[in-house]
Design a binder for these strands. Structure first.
Lengths: 136, 136
DNA sequence: CTGCATCCCGTCGGATACTG
DNA sequence: CAGTATCCGACGGGATGCAG
């Protein structure tokens, strides 16, 4: 695995210095502030599950397959707090609750898609890297 | 915050069903497999710091500003294991160690950039959503 | 300068049981 | 059906001290 040899490519990202120049501090950093709330075990999977239609609680639970109902409730509440999804209660008996992406949540999907496609495309390479590393 | 009303937009992402159809299982899921290793507190910030040039250990520590050296060592080791960065030791006295992105790590930056730009663009909206949620 | 070892505490997250 | 409450083990991550 060779190290980086040439000059940087295109400015994909602002440097940490640039981010600081815009008023960054360890506290007020957009990356930490926003990403730390969706970097948990289930948030991204829930957003994916809701991408094409709203789901009820039980539907989501079956879609995620191996999530505990404790973590489902908790993660949904977190995503709702961030404004990424909405929660609608239908006062029937028994009650039905529907979760749906907000426009804000929907707007996050393309960006997430870029990372997910990268993960899918490079999964094998990464497995090889892990094996090589663990051997040494 | 209105809920999603219309049909899904473009197919940004594969659905969970599609992912499963490709041989997905809770164990072998590219999203969980790959993302769970960079979803920690420091990995993304380290990748950003290394984007334009290699850094030595102390340089990185100063660049991150508020990372403990325990977590810096640990996170660097994890990223190296994933094949995202390389570690080069120069046997001088005192020893110097240089960390640099690998081509694989470099290839992740554009995808990360999409999420980061989204975070920067929507930080204010998210803060408003949190405030509204906490009030209720 | 770079890194490991230890201690310690807070949070994450699963299992289970109980309510409207 | 859609949660809430409790218990508890595992892990993340900071502080400090030691070593090559």
């Amino acid at each position: 695995m060779p190290r980086q040899t040439k000059a940087p490519p295109d400015p994909f990202l602002k440097s940490l210095d640039d981010i600081r120049a815009e008023g960054f501090s360890p506290d007020n950093c957009p990356i930490r502030d926003v990403m730390s709330h969706i970097n948990d075990k289930w948030s991204v999977l829930i957003l994916i599950a809701l991408q094409d239609r709203p789901h009820r609680f039980g539907e989501l639970r079956r879609a995620l397959a191996d999530i505990s109902q404790r973590m489902l409730t908790q993660t949904l509440k977190g995503l709702q707090r961030e404004g990424l999804l909405s929660r609608t209660v239908f006062p029937t008996t028994p009650p039905a609750v529907e979760y749906a992406l907000t426009p804000l949540g929907l707007s996050l999907l393309p960006a997430l898609g870029a990372v997910i496609r990268w993960a899918e495309a490079n999964q094998a390479t990464i497995h090889a890297a892990r094996a090589a590393f663990d051997e040494a």
